[in-house]
Design a protein around this nucleic acid. Structure first.
Lengths: 182, 182
DNA sequence: GAACATACGGAGCACTGCTCCGCTTGTCAA
DNA sequence: TTGACAAGCGGAGCAGTGCTCCGTATGTTC
């Protein structure tokens, strides 16, 4: 028996309402509230998304895919600029929903997560940019993609909490707070 | 009428149990649980600390005071090292309780907070270190104390979530990810 | 030892995440 | 068209949360 039409309709409805609610109140929004706003029962919401993470994942996957695509777009630009631009996109994009940076780091670590795959693909694309910058000596050799992503996520988090622009914090970290003695 | 002995006893008991519980499960630990572990009723806990923030504040104030003192200790060291050491202390100290970096940034912003005073004092002491580093051209002129603190808090947060050492992330930010073209 | 302000404890309210299950409803074969 | 039935729906219900309120107990003072 094929997928029922009402099920698909509800699925999409919940996703779109959740996107709105998350953007408005962060990823900790009450799921009951989302169900209410979508006009479905709480049971229906849980049928489609057994955990809150599952719902976040549905919204996060496309974000990861977009960031991967973005990294590939930037491949033909000068390494330093490409890396800086990409990290800015990562950080500012993470500020869409309050609580999202946490999900990003969680998805990277949790290998059983549905998201892990697309998250790893994104990281790999970013790693490419990082490697190119390192080849040209623009970034220290020992720096790993994980470190760079953690840095970006942390600054996205801090920007949200402090009211300081994420771009500013990222610029400080990229240029180095303390200029090199020369 | 003087303060009752049982009240003072309970107050101190709750604080010490809370410190333990926060260190173990983060600042979002159930307050009912803390009351239970302290052997007092939930009402008693709320009588002493009307909000969760009040309880966090009681634990945070001494931390701020210590960081202020630490900044003053470091005053006679070379500016760059002094700033780096102090920020390391800020960041690693923030990792004591999960959720603490958030409280730090919140206390800085919320001027009505009980904590605001000691938090501002700490910031001022840190600002001194920053200013000295800037005078010697070791840090770019436009960088503000708020930005530096937000950076440290964000990296403390990211370190906790990513499993990467806070010191490592801070070192990346201080040295600059992208070495200067010269 | 009496009087009384002060502090205590927990029942209770409105909320949360999540489960479970009786009742609909969409779908497809007859 | 109609019947059968899997699939999906909705919400009552459970255990937990933060927080309030108030009758009861207790430390303190005269």
């Amino acid at each position: 028996m094929a997928e029922r039409a009402d099920a698909r309709r509800n699925h999409d409805l919940i996703v779109s309402v959740a996107a709105e609610a998350f953007a408005e109140h962060g990823v900790d929004t009450s799921l009951r509230d989302i169900a209410r706003r979508a006009g479905v029962g709480i049971g229906t919401l849980y049928r489609h998304f057994p955990t809150r993470e599952a719902l976040v994942e549905a919204l996060l996957r496309q974000r990861f895919d977009r960031l991967r695509a973005r990294a590939e777009e930037l491949a033909d630009q000068p390494p330093a600029e490409a890396l800086a631009r990409w990290l800015t996109d990562v950080a500012t994009g993470s500020a869409t929903y309050r609580g999202l940076p946490e999900s990003v780091l969680a998805a990277l670590r949790d290998e059983t997560s549905e998201l892990h795959g697309s998250c790893v693909a994104m990281r790999a694309a970013g790693a490419e940019l990082l490697a190119r910058a390192q080849e040209e000596g623009l970034v220290a050799a020992g720096v790993t993609p994980e470190e760079v992503l953690a840095l970006a996520a942390g600054l996205a988090w801090a920007g949200d909490r402090s009211g300081i622009a994420v771009e500013r914090l990222l610029a400080l970290a990229l240029d180095g707070l303390t200029p090199r003695r020369r």
